[in-house]
Amino acid sequence: MVVIHGYFGRCLPNWLNLGATLPNLRDIDIVECACFEVLPMLGQLPNLHRLVIRGAFSVERVGEEFMQGDTKSKDPIVQTISGSARPAFPKLNSLSVQEMPNWKEWQWNKGQPAMPKLKELFIQTCPELRSLPEGLLLLATSLEFLQIFSADKLITLENIPSIKDIRVVSNPNLARISNLPSIGHIYIENCPNLKDVTNPKALRTMVLGDYEMEFLPDYLTTIMVHKLIIWCDEELLLKIVNQEESGSEWNKFKHISKVKIGTEDESLHATYQKTPFSFTTNVNASSDEV
């Protein structure tokens, strides 16, 4: 494992050729290298499994210097048996990018094969990032888990065929999640402008958490999920309980097989089952409408 922490240069020095000197390297952490203007080209590392980049505050764009494979190298480590260049990051399994406040663009076009074995992608506190790159959507065919936290400019998440588990937290402008045909689990927390979640057939569980929402989102009416878990404030929970089956909030989830609703500390909660019908709660339904 290599940790590069607090390096003050604008890029890694030329003499530090990790691909040549450490061909068996599996883990790299690049932490608080605040002066980096570009990320180092690490795609040539043949056995890199895990990469964490945190606190590269000066990076505004991630492009070819990071994503491309070493197509010019004569080193057999970099070449496939057939002689053609292999993809960048050929064995990368987990990628985590955190605390990059000025990162606006990730350029990875569909003509750059890379990350064929990537299974987990974590993006956290990257408020200027506007979208995921085309190459990731088309070429990272093993990607199963995606977590995005505090990407303020992100508007859509769509067209990722292999994804099975997605978690979106504190993305204030996220408006649409769609075309995720293999998705089984969705976790949504504090995404107040999310209006459209396309119904994937494989969806088993959805968790929705927002302690400021006054009403349940309308997209729940089109979601065919086996189990729905909702975390909300006491006011909304009381509203649902007092409305019973005839209320507008009930109409948004009563088609779902199992529903659990609770407050943050779980002191108040309710459970619903469609068939056979049951509804239980520890809330005393009040005659006063909330």
Rank of each mutant, 00 (worst) to 15 (best):
S287G: 15
E65G: 13
S73W: 03
L268V: 02
T198F: 06
Y187M: 08
P181H: 05
L95E: 02
I155D: 12
L180C: 05
V169H: 11
I77K: 14
A114C: 10
L157N: 02
T280G: 09
T141H: 10
L154C: 05
A175I: 07
F36I: 02
D75R: 10
V283M: 05
K153R: 14
L22I: 06
T125P: 00
S287F: 08
K91Q: 15
L139F: 05
I229F: 10
A202N: 14
P127S: 07
A175T: 12
C33R: 00
E234I: 06
L216M: 06
V62S: 02
F149V: 15
N17Q: 14
L238I: 08
L92E: 01
L203C: 12
L22N: 08
L22M: 14
E99G: 06
I155L: 14
T21K: 13
E234K: 11
I166Y: 01
I81A: 15
K74C: 09
E120Q: 12
E60Q: 13
N171I: 07
L208V: 07
L118I: 06
N190E: 13
P101Q: 06
E189V: 05
G247W: 04
A202V: 04
T125M: 11
S142P: 01
P127L: 04
K227V: 11
L39K: 00
I188W: 01
M67F: 15
Q44T: 07
L203N: 02
G262M: 10
N93H: 15
A285Y: 07
L48W: 00
L143G: 01
N93T: 10
A114R: 00
Q79I: 11
M224R: 13
E60G: 10
L237E: 01
F66W: 10
F89I: 06
